[in-house]
Structures are given as C-alpha cells and as structure tokens.
Write a protein that binds this DNA or RNA. Structure first.
Lengths: 242, 242
DNA sequence: CGCAGCCTTGAGCAGTATCAAAGTCGGTGG
DNA sequence: CCACCGACTTTGATACTGCTCAAGGCTGCG
C-alpha cells in the first residue's frame, strides 16, 4: 500500500478546517493557524494503514482532518487490544510527545483517513504561546484517564456478555457515525475480530454472544453492520444503570 | 474515626516542604508558596479513612505531605478495584477539578497520611500564573494514562498468575518503601483482599497463587509482608521482558 | 477466654478459551 | 460470466482457568 502525502498547496487550510469549532486549536489566532497550515504536512491513510507504531519515538502530533483511527496495543502473544478510537478533529500522540517517551500504542486507520502532522518544534511553540491550550489538553487527557479506569474495572469485574453489551452501547454512541436510511438508525461496522479486541475476548465468543443478542431481538445484523434494537435492555445487561 | 485537621499555624510550610524538590510546585516563587501555605488546610487521615469519595464534586486539590493512599472504584456488585496508588509528594484529584466532573474514584489512606488541601480557586489562580505547571501536570497525566492502558491489556490478555507476578514486581518497585533490615530487602504490606483488588481477581485465588510462588521459592511471606526472592523468574512469569 | 476479622484449603461448577471444521462472502482471473 | 480463492464468520466439542461457596485455622485484642 502507498500513502498519498499531499503537496503543501493542497493541504487542508487550518483557518477553514471544518473541525476548527471542536478542535483544541479553536483558540488560536488566525495568524498562528496560518502559520500551522504552512508548517504542517498532511497524509491520506487508506483503510488498514498505520499512522504510527508502538515503540517509535514521536516526532510531532497528529490531528485527524477526517476519518477513524484505532489506537491499539499488541500483546506478547500477538493478540491485539484496542484501547481507544480517535476521530475527526481529535489529536493523537501528544501525551507521548510531551513525555518524551515512545508511542505506547499503534494507530491504524479504520477507514480512509486524512491526518495532519505538526512537528514537535512547531507544536511546542504554539503550546508555549497559548497556556489555555495546555489546560484544554489537560482536560482531554483527564477524560481519557477516566475512561481508561472505567475500562479497567469493566475488564476486572464484568463477564464477557456484559462487556460486549457495554461496548456496543459505547460504540453506538461515540463511534458510530453511519446512519442507515432503510432502518432509520445508526450502525456499528467493525470486524468480529476487532470487536473482540475491544471487549478483550476471543473472536468466537463475540460471535456466539452476538448470536444470542440477535435471538433475544436486542440487535440485528447485516454483514458486518450491527444495529441496536433495544438499548434499554442492553444497558441493563451491561449494568450501566445502577 | 475522627480526623485531625490542623490549625493554620501548625500546617506544614510549603516553602520548607520535604516534597518540594519532587513536587509540581517546585517551580513556584517563594511568595506564591507562602501564599499557598496560608490558604491551604491540612488533615491527618488515619489508616482506612477516606480522603474523598467517588461521586463527590471536587472542591480543590490534594497534595500528599506524607503517607500512602489507594485510589479505588467500587464495582456494581460491591467488589473494589484499586486503580492506582498515590504517595508522598503527589497530587490527587486535579483531573476531576479541571474537568468539572465528579470524582471517578475513592481515595483511602493505606497508612496514617498527612494530606494538604488547596481550594479550587487558589489552585486555578496558581495554574494560570504558571503555564509550566499545566505542562508538568500534562506529563504526569500522560504517564498515568500509559500505565492505565498497560493495565487494560494486562487484564484483557494475561491469566491471573501472570498478573499477580506483574503486580508484585510493580508494587515492589514503586509502592514498597519499607525496608526489612533482617532480610536486607524491601517488602510489600497489603491485605490479601487488597492485592486481589489490584490484580482483579478473588481473594482466594491470590492466596493460592502466593502459596504456589512460596513453594517455588520465588517469594517469602511473614504475616502480611511479602518479600520477593527471585525477581528474574517473577518477571518471566509476568511476561515483562519480551 | 472468646470473639472478630483475616487467612487458608478444598470441592464443584460456570464461563471462556482453544482447536477444528464447515459455511459465507466478495473479489479476481480465466 | 462463472469458478475459484482467500479471508472472514459461524458452529461444535472439549478442556481448563478461576469463581463461588463452605468450613476450618490463625492472630490479635478486649
């Protein structure tokens, strides 16, 4: 596979970026946004391509112009664990950059994704100029930590059936962006293996439990697409309301 | 149990705090350290007492003058999960404060601990005055996130025996501060239940596996104290070198 | 001394992983 | 256009890890 890195004049302009309203960079002046536009690079990653690898030293930060990226780690036996997703408008890799440590996980495109890259030098320059930016990143990181800790207690205490229900609900809320017009509802599109790598179980177990959920009329499936029919019951199974 | 909150004149003085060299506040001017000293309060928590509860709204940040605190969450079935420890010199609760969300976990003293408290107002004042402070906290939070993600993959993929070996090694390195003069080595002092709440398993399973380790001459025990005799083999079991 | 709280050991069972094999789907090339 | 190939999905059988429940032992303290 070959990556398509755009020429500077083709780069998406940060001043007019659709993600600007939601982005950490929304507080920047137009001059600085222009400055970033000039200094950044921008790459189209095809589905399955890797943005950065676990173990590499980071050389800058990534900002997702559009697309979906999975952040995953490889276990000692080769089995993957997806720790989180990053989507349009989100930053990736800044915690590693600031800590001067290697990437603790790999970032892989789940669909064709445009990702902008800003070098460490240019990023830290902006960071020092805008103290508010540190605070925003602090907030975001704090939220990621809370989510990670919730995942820890879920893995430690909930059986797979509950974790799968939980995962489906979370994915449906934050990850699913596809809207099925026929069914008039959102859908989740991931391979069974990837689902297993989020839930922390074997692929076969995910399949069996999805079949159970389908028989119980809680979900319906169509190829890889999963539709949630009965979120209330799924929430109960996931023990999300207590 | 009754908490001993000190009078202002008895408070440990931030200017002369032993933790200052390692603290996030080391970059502050003497004037500001004095200012904090005046505005903070300071409480002695006896072993087992709670500093803050999961679900409460934070009203400020905590700084551990001395002692050991466990940060833990309660699962839906009442079973606890220890997500992390905080020790002398560390801050607690700032990620919640900045995000304006409730505490996601409970903080309980593992031994008699002196904890200073600085109100939200005074903390944010300092935070805005010292942009470098945000960056330091960002680094610390980034490291906590990396550790949390490592815990996630460990829970998802390693069997209990490996996780227990891993936990013993980590505790021995970062948590254990007691030094046994007779044996000339460090020791870990925690109840079996607390160990289980870190590893994410049942108390009985921890006991059985500790017995195995003892028979294999990897550890020795003396009441609650655990000594690691063969760290190399334990690391192999924990799959920490690969 | 006796109680309470922890630690320890045992037996049985439930939930999951693993291995193996068959079925499905989409794409590619003859 | 159809047959085949490979990758993914599904189902089944089996084994094992680790949990739960139950009972007994140890230790410190009132």
């Amino acid at each position: 596979m070959k990556m398509a890195t755009l020429l500077a004049k083709e780069f998406p302009n940060c001043l007019e970026c659709k993600t600007k309203p939601f982005s950490n960079f929304s507080i920047l002046s137009n001059d600085d946004l222009y400055d970033i536009s000039i200094h950044k690079s921008c790459t189209l990653y095809k589905k399955g391509q890797v943005v950065y690898y676990e173990g590499e030293y980071p050389s800058g930060i990534y900002c997702i112009h559009y697309g979906k990226i999975k952040i995953h780690k490889i276990g000692y036996n080769g089995k993957a664990q997806i720790v989180r997703f990053a989507q349009t408008g989100e930053f990736m890799g800044y915690q590693m950059l600031l800590n001067n440590v290697r990437h603790s996980a790999t970032a892989t495109a789940l669909e064709d994704s445009m990702v902008c890259f800003l070098s460490k030098l240019n990023f830290t320059k902006i960071l020092h100029k805008y103290p508010k930016l540190s605070e925003n990143l602090l907030n975001r990181l704090g939220r990621l930590l809370i989510e990670a800790e919730e995942k820890i207690i879920s893995l430690a205490q909930k059986p797979v059936r509950e974790r799968l229900a939980e995962t489906l609900i979370i994915l449906n809320k934050v990850y699913s962006t596809e809207y099925d017009l026929n069914r008039n509802c959102k859908s989740i599109t991931l391979s069974r293996e990837e689902l297993a790598d989020i839930v922390g179980t074997a692929t076969e177990t995910v399949i069996r439990l999805l079949s159970d959920f389908r028989e119980e009329k809680l979900i319906s499936t169509q190829g890889r697409k999963i539709f949630l029919n009965d979120i209330v019951t799924l929430r109960k199974i996931a023990k999300l309301d207590y």
